[in-house]
Design a protein around this nucleic acid. Structure first.
Lengths: 139, 139
DNA sequence: CTTGAAGCTCTAGTCGCTATAGCAATTAAA
DNA sequence: TTTAATTGCTATAGCGACTAGAGCTTCAAG
């Protein structure tokens, strides 16, 4: 019951070079090898890689994922760290949303500041890109 | 009326190595030099750098900024390109917001799935990070 | 047994900076 | 005028999280 790196890739949606990269970075344990030196993964590796994939999809940086993996190796530890990581990431995501909403407002203003068909000199879009003073808010 | 690279940095908020980087990348023209080989910028460079800064703050990638600068050198061209860049960026920002809102929802669920004070084995946070099947939506 | 897909390692490139090292020039104070 | 502090110079390497390519070897199906 073992998988080639390609099997793992198909089952998780993680690309082959990325799997090798995760191994190099220590997120995945180095697997056994075939006689011809090819990687042979077990189902625990499949699970681990699925975990990493989901965390990455949720935007967690690799150090946070490392911490979570370390934590899962020590089942008796309290779960504060996992909670903190989730909350930190939630906070970070909310900050990014807030920032992007400001950008959205300014870009909407900029993109609609040109009312038709004319040349660069007359166009407000370029002026708006250049001049922060025209903005409605900080961003 | 010329500025050192430090003057330019203080006036625009762009760090000194970043200014040199912009010059290397061709966003800023190579300025004149002092007798001792130090950069001496003119106020047109200050303006240009302010333009770049504002565009970067709005999230434009450098190739887009290059296009806008090229455009501003040809005042007789139609302004379609500038409009397209603004609209593309607006679209990209809206997509990122939509994505981040999904992440926010999942992370909220994950971060609140732990009701107190226990160990890793009993904790839902780690399970939730590992299992996309528990998610309420795609992300 | 052959062939084509898949795997291997190693290196370099992506983007937009940022940091460091080891110098040289400028500016202000003593 | 000398000195010291600050600022500037070039060149190189590093960040995060991959991705692409070269050149080779192994595997699995027919």
């Amino acid at each position: 019951m073992d998988f080639s790196i390609g099997d793992l890739s198909r089952r998780t949606g993680v690309k082959v070079p990325t799997i090798r990269y995760y191994e190099k970075e220590g997120l995945l344990e180095a697997p056994l090898r075939s006689e011809g030196n090819q990687r042979r993964f077990r189902s625990s590796d499949l699970e681990r890689l699925g975990f990493i994939k989901h965390c990455r999809d949720l935007g967690l940086p690799m150090p946070a994922i490392r911490d979570l993996i370390d934590l899962s190796q020590h089942p008796d530890k309290p779960c504060e760290t996992a909670n903190r990581i989730a909350e930190d990431q939630l906070k970070a995501v909310r900050q990014r949303i807030a920032h992007l909403r400001k950008l959205e407002a300014e870009l909407k203003r900029i993109a609609t500041s040109c009312e038709g068909d004319h040349t660069v000199t007359e166009c407000n879009v370029l002026k708006a890109f250049g001049d922060h003073g025209l903005c409605l808010q900080e961003h």
